[in-house]
Amino acid sequence: MNADRSTSRRSYLCRTLVLLAATFAAHAAFAEGPQSTPSIFAPAGTPAASIFDLSLFVIAITGGIFVVVAGLLTYAIVRYRHKKGDEKSEPAQVYGSTQIELAWTVVPVLIVVVLFLTTARLIFAIQDAPRPKKTLDVTVIGHQFWWEFHYPKLGIVTANELHIPVSSNQQPQAVFLKLYSADVDHSFWVPQLAGKTDLIPNNENVMWMDAKHPGLYVGQCAQFCGVEHAKMLLRVYADTPEEFAAWVKNQQQAAVVDPQVEAGRELFARQSCMNCHTIKGTPATGHYGPDLTHLMSRETIAAGAAPNTPAAMKEWIRDPDSVKPGALMPAMHLTDGQIDQLVAYLETLH
């Protein structure tokens, strides 16, 4: 499952060959540590990196074909354009030539053979990679328009922001995802880490990825899933082993109970919030919306539609449509006082 390093020499060659790719490649090669970009040319994980290498190879081949064929075309246009005096006679009438035609059939055949073999090799290398002993399992459930994450072995449920431990040569760490959907088709795509895989209802899909540098990797849903498909963003945090352990420990706790925000907590349980949201350790056990037990451990709300600030949170609870039109959380018509109490409570959920 390790990226085949034998390809790196070839890809180095391609890099020097292909101008366009080289610009992007430089972007990747000189990136100091991780960058938060969804570019497929800034890989930071094994599958993404090996796909990147293959893509350079393919760009080199197709670029070569383009140069040759477009060059011949240009030559023909310039050389054989109609000139003065040409109207006096017709050019020699040529009907075809079996030898020439055979020749230009064989070349594409050879190119296809080469392309197919390299492609097939990588398909098998990524898809059928043997599962290493040390892996992290995560179950991803796509919802209109947010992501639900379960860590079955760790007993954690969270949403929209996935935390994984970083992978190093000393401590390789792959993450295996099982992908499901609660409603319609979605697609899990964090370009710097791996290609995308769809989440299809009534169907189980799997994919794996790893992150070579600690940091944030952004992506988003890549299969049209309804009105707010554009705001179904995805954030993956690759943590150092220590950070990850601390994160896990915190997530495993029940929700913080702070007597100062008792009013907000009661309101949450009295309003229908609890029908849709779970807050561990309270009567709220709804499953329709994201788990809010550790809401404050997230940097964004509503799948990246807004930053996790008290002001944005108030606006979200007052009228979700104003933040994310078409989101499936209803406006509850609460008074400003009630919203303040609720948000004060939510702000304690670290």
Binding site: I40, P47, A48, S50, I51, L54, S55, V58, L115, T119, L122, I123, I126, S187, P191, A194, G195, K196, T197, A222, Q223, F224
Partner: peptide, 12 residues
């Protein structure tokens, strides 16, 4: 058509 690359490019 290069399937692994397509995993990146698809729907983009």
């Amino acid at each position: 058509s290069v399937a692994p690359w397509n995993w990146q490019l698809h729907n983009s």
